[in-house]
Measured scan of single mutants.
Amino acid sequence: DEDSERELEKLRKNNASKEEIKEVLKRLGFSEDEAKKLAEKAG
Rank of each mutant, 00 (worst) to 15 (best):
E19I: 04
I21D: 01
L8D: 01
E40D: 11
F30T: 01
A16G: 04
S17D: 05
K10G: 05
A35D: 01
G29W: 00
S17R: 06
A16T: 03
D3Y: 12
E5A: 11
A35M: 04
E9N: 10
D33K: 06
F30P: 00
K26D: 03
A35G: 02
E34H: 04
E20Y: 10
K36N: 14
L11Q: 02
E20K: 09
K22V: 15
K41R: 12
A39G: 02
L38N: 02
K13I: 06
E5P: 05
A42H: 15
G29L: 00
K22E: 15
A35F: 05
K37L: 13
A16W: 08
A35Q: 03
S17K: 05
K13H: 07
E5V: 13
L8P: 01
E19N: 05
G29S: 00
E40Y: 07
G29I: 00
E2C: 15
R27N: 06
R12T: 05
V24E: 05
E5M: 14
E34Q: 09
L11A: 05
E7M: 15
S31T: 11
G43I: 14
D1W: 14
K22T: 14
E2S: 12
K22H: 09
D3W: 13
D33Y: 08
D3L: 12
V24T: 09
K41H: 11
F30G: 00
E7P: 01
S17N: 05
A35S: 04
D3H: 10
D1I: 13
D33S: 08
E32P: 04
I21R: 01
K37Q: 10
E19L: 05
K37M: 12
R6C: 15
E20Q: 10
D33H: 07
E32V: 03
K13M: 08
K36F: 10
E2M: 13
K36W: 12
K26V: 12
E19D: 09
L25E: 00
L8C: 13
K18R: 10
K26N: 05
E34Y: 06
K41P: 08
K37G: 06
E40L: 06
E32K: 02
R6Q: 07
E2L: 13
L25S: 00
K22Q: 10
N15M: 10
N14R: 15
G43N: 11
R6W: 10
S4W: 15
S4F: 15
N14A: 11
E20H: 07
E23F: 01
E20G: 03
K36Y: 09
E34A: 08
E5Y: 14
E32W: 03
E34C: 14
E7L: 15
A35T: 02
K26L: 14
K37R: 13
A39Y: 06
L8W: 07
K10M: 11
E23Q: 08
D3T: 11
K26E: 06
R6L: 08
K26I: 14
E2V: 13
K18M: 14
D3P: 08
A35W: 07
G43K: 10
A42T: 10
L38A: 05
A16R: 06
E7Q: 11
D3R: 12
E5N: 10
L38R: 05
A35L: 05
S17T: 10
R12N: 03
E7G: 03
S4L: 15
E5S: 11
A16K: 04
K18T: 12
E19C: 09
L11D: 01
K10T: 09
K18I: 15
D3N: 10
E2G: 11
E7W: 15
A39S: 09
G29N: 01
A16C: 14
N14C: 15
L25N: 00
E19H: 07
